[in-house]
């Protein structure tokens, strides 16, 4: 068999270019499916506004989340903490969250301490540490800004559980894969609010769409002293707290 160097190189070049085209089937289109469901992820960017001055620690949000998402007992996608800060000792607040606050809190009558409730939930970070450490791409940022978990792809390796600075993830005791707040993705993509926001009696928390110019979040961010949890972690959290005390971790 004789073949010139020029022919050999040009033939193998063509083969190299054509082989992937032949081997990889074209992925099915999904954009049309989303349009059919009437939801366009590119037009939303989900966030949450939490007003500390409105939270009464009733636990409605915790129970609603549990009922909506079948959260196993002893695990929490959202929970409430009660802070008691004595005098000038900002560094050592007393923090309690009996059963995640799902049944409320025993009444306090501490006149010497600064007290308040802090609802906690996945902060839906724009730069999520959990997404960065996932070795298989099972946890990801959705196009509309929600950090989600692909349950059928998660290995249950727990990297993300360790990486989350807010302690918002747990291993589901039945599935042995990671589980977390989805911002009720199945609800918000149908035009409903999250279960916790629906059940909150005082409006302490409100789902927000940063891409909607008419959303009250813009007024909320403008008129309140707003903070996010652990800004030094550079996670660019999207759960915004009004009246958040410096003692909160």
């Amino acid at each position: 068999m004789t073949i010139s160097r020029r022919d050999l190189l040009s033939q193998s070049g063509k083969l190299l270019i054509l082989a992937p085209v032949a081997a990889v089937p074209a992925p099915p289109r999904r954009a049309s499916e989303d349009a059919a469901a009437g939801y366009d992820p590119s037009r939303h960017r989900w966030a949450m506004a939490i007003d500390i001055d409105k939270c009464i620690g009733c636990g409605n949000c915790v129970r609603a989340c549990e009922q909506e998402n079948d959260v196993p007992a002893g695990f929490f996608r959202t929970w409430i903490e009660r802070y008691q800060v004595s005098g000038a000792d900002q560094e050592h607040p007393k923090v309690e969250s009996p059963d995640g606050g799902r049944n409320g809190f025993p009444p306090s009558s501490n006149s010497n301490a600064k007290e308040f409730y802090v609802p906690k939930i996945c902060n839906q970070c724009s730069e999520s540490p959990c997404v960065q450490v996932c070795p298989v791409g099972a946890t990801f940022d959705s196009p509309d800004g929600v950090v989600l978990v692909d349950q059928s792809y998660c290995l249950g390796c727990r990297y993300c559980v360790h990486a989350c600075p807010y302690g918002c993830r747990y291993i589901h005791p039945g599935r042995h894969t990671v589980d977390k707040c989805t911002f009720c993705y199945h609800r918000i993509t149908r035009g409903l609010t999250t279960a916790c926001c629906e059940a909150c009696p005082t409006g302490a928390r409100a789902l927000a769409d940063l891409k909607d110019p008419r959303d009250p979040i813009h007024e909320f961010l403008r008129v309140n002293k707003v903070h996010v949890l652990k800004p030094h972690m550079a996670t660019r959290a999207k759960v915004f707290y009004a009246s958040l005390d410096g003692a909160v971790r």
């Binding site: 999904r30 946890t139 989600l148 349950q151 059928s152 792809y153």
Partner: peptide, 11 residues
């Protein structure tokens, strides 16, 4: 870097 179909599954 994820399975796009999982979005619909979650929904």
């Amino acid at each position: 870097h994820y399975r796009a179909a999982s979005l619909d599954e979650i929904r």
